[in-house]
Design a binder for these strands. Sequence first.
DNA 1: CGAAACCTTGACTTTAATCAAGGTACGTGG
DNA 2: CCACGTACCTTGATTAAAGTCAAGGTTTCG
Lengths: 232, 232
Amino acid sequence: MGRSGVQELRAGLRPGAHGQEIELRFRKGEIIFFQGDRSDGWFEVVSGIVRTCRFHIDGHRQLTGFYYKGDAFGVECGRREAAAEAVTNAILSRHFAAAGELESSSQNHALERALESANQCIFLLGRRNANERVAAFLLIAAERLESPESIPLPMPRSDIADHLGLTIHTVSRTISGFVRRGLIELDGPQMCRIIDVEGLMAVAGEEVEAAIERLHTAGPSSVAVHPRGERL
Amino acid sequence: MGRSGVQELRAGLRPGAHGQEIELRFRKGEIIFFQGDRSDGWFEVVSGIVRTCRFHIDGHRQLTGFYYKGDAFGVECGRREAAAEAVTNAILSRHFAAAGELESSSQNHALERALESANQCIFLLGRRNANERVAAFLLIAAERLESPESIPLPMPRSDIADHLGLTIHTVSRTISGFVRRGLIELDGPQMCRIIDVEGLMAVAGEEVEAAIERLHTAGPSSVAVHPRGERL
DNA sequence: CGAAACCTTGACTTTAATCAAGGTACGTGG
DNA sequence: CCACGTACCTTGATTAAAGTCAAGGTTTCG
């Protein structure tokens, strides 16, 4: 049912400035492309917010990224690894991939950005507990939006949860915890103000005590790096 | 201490076939490059296994991938996002990035493979429990090694743990659990045989239909996709 | 005003981390 | 060759964290 609507909307695209680029509008909640679609180019966010998501077999969703103004997404070749959807009303600039040599450097750049974005997602998911993940998520959002204090969170809690590998309950409780500890304040569930950046960064990096405790463990990393004291 | 050894080894590189490529040998445990190093090219695995890892502030390690014969790693530009280390003795082919137009299509290809690898890592970490993650890890290793039944696991359990976001204890217990359930067998901790592929896939949550699912994902996504029943 | 979607919180359960102890494989040197 | 040390692996008991179940509250919009 949704699919035909998207096709319609795609048909309604308007030619952009360069022939190679096209500007598209999507409304909140609309699908930009489906997981498994044949890929014929990538997108850049002009305004609004976009999410990409993949589905596990049990229906459980993994959001692989949120994309803000200037971010690129959907750079994969062949088939779409993840679906893309508009979190808010959004304007996108579309770039076609198969355009040959002229395009290759910009495609390269887009690929690099996509890789960076993927690495950021890995780094978020690699954190060990909910506090770290949510704090890091908020700080990243603040940085991406270039809004040092005020962070709009137009995505539902379920999006944040599926991005961080948590449940909406844990996300909600964690955010409430931050409010209780005076790290942030909420103006409604969709608007967050950071009160104590330092404190939030400390949480994101892990509580101080835990970090110290780990240093005393005599660097598990260096051990792991040279498992058998291999000499070079 | 390790660094000087690596530099020495780098000095000992031998010119390869095409001038643009060089073949390098690393011994088990050696560092290929450090996180934060300036990037001047990427690598392809000729033989052996390589891991890439990033470190969180607390010293906690995140392995972002294992790379087997034919895999590319270290494709990022600017500075290395992650360190790379030889899990086993390894032979690598080195590709220089700044070589201009001729190289750009192969760099593009390498970037795409790197992105795929990152996505796989996200998909592993996105799984909800230890059973799913370990089972998926084993299946992926089997597939990558093109060894349908016998999976060598030359990396220590700590590597697997840091890759999957678990502890070595949980990894060990989970593997033991699979053995107890008759899904796999171990010939020593570093050699694993899959007894019941179907069963393991069922545990991983990624049944044979997974590939198919990806092709027509319209169903389950449309629910999540239209949180407010937005009409197009 | 009512409905729908979304958010928060409390009580309880499950899962994985932590703490602690042994066990195994393997290389080194006596 | 065997004893020893080191790194690595496994397992049991306990604790901490996040998931689940359940209920009620808030926001938004028609």
